[in-house]
Every structure is written in structure tokens, then in C-alpha cells.
Design a protein around this nucleic acid. Structure first.
Lengths: 214, 214, 214, 214
DNA sequence: AATGAATGAGAGTTCATTCAT
DNA sequence: CATGAATGAACTCTCATTCAT
């Protein structure tokens, strides 16, 4: 899957990078506050620290800004996650660490994640598959960790349920961002993480039945 | 929490109901396809089977359409869910039935649920709290069922985790709608439901450790 | 100059009269408050005590309402003025009584006169000449009274200035309505009338010069 | 009384001035022909020589155009009047010159004055007081001249009638614009001015009575 | 490379008028 | 005669995009 080429009239690549970073930063704040459609290109330019004319030196259309945001967010989320996942753990603790890491990263980048979640559908047609691809890659990264633990025998799961388990983890992470309105009154990141780990690992079924049932 | 009053110039209440039902139906299809912002009021009118002038006889602003959609969707989702939940079950089977019912309803109303999920943030300021309230009510309904099963001793869960368990169920339901792009290739509603029930009830931890760990 | 025919679908002439009277009354209040253009036909219908459908049984277009208002206002102003002018006076007192009467009528019908003044330009093209004609008629009526006093030798005025004197009187009357924002703080109808009579009759030139100058 | 700030997206103040002057010129012609409400913003833009988008770079709303017109008209009327009033005169001639100057300016700016007169009521709520204030200022300027002549003893007038005399002059000036339909057939600016000066100075009362009455 | 004035298609909304009941 | 739901032309205003400087 190819990264979408965002056209720029400016040749100096370093400058392009710098300006786009400014754009992404300004745009995220605006998109979070008012959403993609209610944000004007003028506002983006202003928040980025340059003029509307300059904005269009670095992008081809407003939608490109959204794409750049999404791309940047995935990049940073993955990077931070990888950073945390360098810490090696074994057995069930590996899973616990995975969940903790994922949730931590999402918590740190709440605004960005939320924006992506809510505005991804406005992405230019050609860009959506690429962004979904990055989501899939991330899910696969999660899945790999789970697979390792499964290989150690510390988690039980039929083959075909492994992807779903990974996807569940992703969603529980995102949930911390997009259901914040509901969760924030009862949970801190720590209590939320702890409770979710519990439910992920042990499920709801009471032990008594677990044991009897076998 | 008060239902928002949507102004109408037409006095005949039955007619208002009928026309708004047409509107909601037409609008959901459009919103799903192109999102709220890219859908024009003229398109909504046309899809509803009347003129732009008539549309505005039944609403005060475009945002009202979105509110009517959200309100109607919650109404129908809840109604259908209640319908399914009349079937009485006991023990773990009650939980299984709850999950099956929830997922079934969401599957039947995929488009509507997806639209609500993605566009709720565009709701008029006064309407958002009401819609969130309905989401909470629904979550509580789920929670009640879980509480019953817990009272029977078939599920284990500290008090403070019950709300989270309910919220998790809700999200896993919605997930079937909003991650369809990812799930549809590997799962049917049935396999998805079965797999999720499994993970919800038993968790990921291998029995061997479960037993040893105590 | 023909009175403009305002079309009505209703045959019963007495009813037409009654309904149009209701219309004029309701419309004047609205026009005064918000002007002709900012007043909607629905509002006129409501203020008149019937439905929008009924309104259009008695007029052909919104502009007809304005015409009916103007026509009615002139009718009533003239009628009231005639009423007051039946009181016979002689010499300068006739002029004084004329001014007093004119100002009194305009004071009583401030709202109506103001509306006519401000909205006449919105009259349907065919109706404007008729309304201007009525204004001319009224001015001539004033002029006739002045002519009488002039014949008595109590006022000095070259022939060709008589129409202007009449027109001046009319404008000073209207002025009481349309410059109310400025006059109301310093004058009551009585003091305004008295002061104007003074200036109309004696002018500004100091007597000393008057006398010397000849 | 503060001048209302009309918002502009354009920063170059000189350009703003220039464009607004174009706007005022174009708008006056249109307002005169069809009135404020029947003139569309697109027509204003076209008459001003730019696009609808550009129009809105220089104003916030259609009403702002009307305000700019009124403001510009007062500015120019006052300026021209001051210009004429630099010519010094004494005694009754001062009054004559005042009237002649006032009428001349209004004659030169007939269209503008008429538009202001007829459309002022459509001014944005906050702007009306400011415009009325300018009218008052102008009236006071007239009053000052009268006061001077009065101090010289060439005009007779109780203190409290001075403001009214000034207001009368203003209205007689405007009258040349707004009753043109009636006056134009009998008067030129010169004959109108001459006749009005006569009546203003000497009043209607015949000398014989003036003299006898004392 | 940066600016910001100019553009105009297109959006939401209003409202005079019609006509079936 | 009275009603009021339906209509759609027309309005004001916005904003992504361009391009001369």
C-alpha cells in the first residue's frame, strides 16, 4: 500500500516537512474543537503560523491536511508504542504490559486519536485505504504480541480468534478516547487499565462454573 | 433530560410524525453515504420525497434532521432490544442471549448506528447531552441484565467493574458496525457473536494458569 | 385617476370590506414595527385574524396590502381633516385653525402616516400615481383654505407661491410624524403647533428690519 | 457616539477605502432605483465592479452597505456644506446664504439624500443612533448660523424656537429631494430656493395686519 | 517562497403564492 | 368561504481555491 503523495509546490524537502508539521499541529487542535468540516482553511493557515497562500504551497486541497494529520498520528502512535514495547516481558505479564502500553499511548494522544476516529471518513477517497492499512498494521503488531504469549501457553485462544482479540484490544484502547465523556467520571487511566486487563484476561464467567464445566 | 423540541410550522401532529419518519429514512441513507456535512438539505428533501420548502416546514435547521435521526435510531434500537430481551433465560445463557440480542439489533441497524456514531459530534449543542443520555440509558439496561446474572453467581465481577463490563458490551456491539471494514472479511454476524461471547465470558488467560495461580 | 382594483375571489362586498379593514389594521401595526419588507404575509394574516389562505382570498399580492393601507390612511386622514375643517373661522384664525387641524389629525394617525411615508416607494408600480394623486388632492385642499385667507387679505403671497405654502404645511405636518425621534424630547403637539404657527405666519425676519426695509 | 466598525477581511486600509467608495457609489444608484430590500447583494457587487465574494471581503452583512452609504452621504453633505459656508456674510444675507447653500448641496446629492431618507429605517439596530446623531449634528450646524444672525438682531425668535427653525430648514432642504415628484413641475432649484427664503423670512401674515396688530 | 485579495459555486434558509380539501 | 400544507425561486453569506505581486 503506497503512501499517498501530497503535492507541494515547494522543492526544499526539509522545509516541506517543517511546514507540514506546523500544519498538523495547528489542525489537530482545530479539528478537535470544531471538526474537520467546520474548520476553514484560513483557520488552519493561521493556526499553523502562515498565510492561506502559503498553506496551498504545501498541500493540494483541504483534505490533504486531514490525510497528513492521520498519517502523522499513526506514525507517532506506532513509534511511541514500539518504544514502550521494547521492554521485554514474559508470560501473562507480556499481555499486561501490551495493554498498559497501548492505553498509555492513546491516553497521551487522546486529541489526535479522537480526531482521526471521527474524521477519517472525510479522507480523500484514495487516502482512506492507506489509513485503514496502517490501522491494520497496528492491529497486527498487537496480534504478534498476543501470538507470542499464546505460544508460551499463557493464553488460550483458537487460531481464528487471535485477530479478533487483537482488534478488541485496539478498540478498548480507542474507547478510552472516544467514550471519555462516559468513562472519565468513574475511571482514571490507571483504574481503567487495571479493570480492562482483568476482564480481558479472566472474562466474566465465575470460576465455580469454569471449574465445574470441565 | 428533556427531549429537544424541534420546531414545525405544521400543526397536524400525525402528519409531522409521518413526514419526519420519511425524513429520517431518507437522511440516514444519505448521511451514511456522504456524511452529514456533505449532504445538502436539498438532497435530504429529495430523498424524503418532498421539496426543500416542505422540509423546512418540519424542521428549524439542518442540524435538526441529525437530531431526529439520532433520536429515532435510539428509539428503535431500544425497542428492538427490549423485544428480544423479553425472552427469559437464566444463568450464563442470559448473558449469551444478551450479547446475541444486542449484536443482532446493531447488525440490523448497521447504517443507522454507524451514522449516529460518526455524526453525533455535529449535533446542535443542546441536543448532544440528550443523545448521550440515551446512550447511557441503554448501557444501564445492559448493566441490569449483567447484574441479574451476577446475582445468580454465574459471573464474577467486583461491583465497580459492572458498568465497565456493560460499556464494553456496548462498544463490542458498535464495533460490529464501525469496524465492519475490517471484520467483514473474516466474520459473519454469527461467528463474530460466538467468538466475542467466548472471549467475554472466559477471557484470554489459559486455564492452566488460572488454576495454578490460586 | 382611477382607484386601483384590488382583486378578490370573494363576492360578498360587505365581507370584502370587513376583511380588508381587519387586514389594514393588522398590517399597519406590523409595518410600523418592522417595515413592509420584513413583514411576512403569514404575519399579516395572523395579525388580521385569519389564515394565509384566507388572506389571498381578498388580495392578489402582498403589495396590495400596502396599497390598501395607503388608501385607507388617506381616506381616514382626509375624512378627519374635513371634519375639523367644518368649523368655520375667518382671517388669520382660519390659517391657525387649518394648521392645528392638520397637525392634530397627523398626530392621531402617526403610525399610519409614518408607514405610508416610509413604505410608499414599495407600492406596486400602477398604484403609486394614484397614491401621489391623493397626496396632491390633500395638498390642494390645504391650498384652498390658504387661498381663502389670502382673498381676505390676511396673508401675503404671490400667486405662484401659494402651492408651495400648502406643500410646506403638509410637510410640517408629516414632519411631526417622521422626525418624532428628534422633536419628541422638546415639544408636545401643542407647543410644536404653536411654534410652527408662529414661524409660518411671521417668518424669521426681525420686525425692525421688516419695517425699515420698506 | 461611536462610528460603527464595519468588519473587513482585507487589511490594506487604503484598499478598503477605495473598494468601499466603489460600493457606496454602486449601491446608491441601485437603492435609489429599487430600494434597499429589492436590491440583491449580487447586484451591489456587480454595480461596484467586483464579485459577490469580494463584496463580503469588505463588509459583514448587506446592512453594512446601507450604513456605509449613510455614513458617506453625511460626510460628503457636511463637507460640501462647510465648503459653501466658508463664504462669510452678515445680517439677513447670512441666512439667505445658509438656505441657498443647504439647498444647493441637497440638490447636488439628491439621489444620496433620498436613499438615506427612505432606507434609514433598515439600518442595523446599532447603526441607527449614530446616523441620527449625524443628522442632529448637521441640524446644530444650521442652528449655529441662525444663532449668529439672531445675535445680530436680524432675526426674531424666542430661544426655544431656534432648534425648531433649524429643523424646519433641514426639512425644507430634504423636501426638495423627497417631494421632487411634486415640486419639479413648478420649480427649479433657483425658484424653489427664492420662494422658500421669502416664506422663511417673512412668513405668510400680510404686513397690513402685522402693522395694525401692534 | 510567501502573501492575501479576488473569485464564484454552492450552501442553508425564507417566504410569497397556490390549491386540494 | 376558509384552511394550511406544499412549493421552489430567490436570497444572503461562506469558503476552498487561485494567482498576481
Amino acid at each position: 500500500m503506497e503512501k499517498k503523495r501530497v503535492p507541494s509546490l515547494v522543492k526544499d524537502e526539509a522545509l516541506v516537512h517543517k511546514r507540514r508539521a506546523q500544519m498538523v499541529k495547528g489542525a489537530v487542535a482545530l479539528f478537535k474543537e470544531k471538526g474537520f468540516h467546520r474548520t476553514t482553511t484560513r483557520e488552519i493557515a493561521k493556526a499553523s503560523g502562515f498565510s492561506i497562500g502559503t498553506l496551498y504551497e504545501y498541500i493540494g486541497s483541504k483534505e490533504d491536511v486531514l490525510y497528513l494529520v492521520c498519517d502523522a498520528v499513526y506514525g507517532e502512535v506506532m513509534e511511541r508504542l514500539e518504544q514502550l514495547l521494547t521492554e521485554e516481558n514474559a508470560g501473562v505479564e507480556r499481555v499486561r504490559h501490551l495493554v498498559r502500553s497501548l492505553f498509555k499511548v492513546i491516553d497521551e494522544m487522546q486529541d489526535e486519536v479522537l480526531v482521526m476516529y471521527q474524521e477519517a471518513k472525510s479522507l480523500p477517497k484514495e487516502a482512506l485505504p492507506y489509513v485503514l492499512q496502517r490501522e491494520k498494521e497496528m492491529t497486527e503488531r498487537i496480534q504478534d504480541v498476543l501470538a507470542k504469549s499464546r505460544a508460551e501457553g499463557v493464553i488460550q485462544l483458537p487460531d481464528e480468534q487471535l485477530p479478533l482479540a487483537a482488534e478488541n484490544l485496539m478498540v478498548k484502547g480507542h474507547m478510552w478516547a472516544f467514550r471519555r465523556w462516559s468513562l472519565a467520571s468513574s475511571y482514571s487511566l490507571e483504574t481503567y487499565t487495571k479493570a480492562q486487563i482483568e476482564q480481558i484476561l479472566s472474562g466474566l464467567k465465575a470460576d465455580v462454573e469454569n471449574k465445574r464445566g470441565r
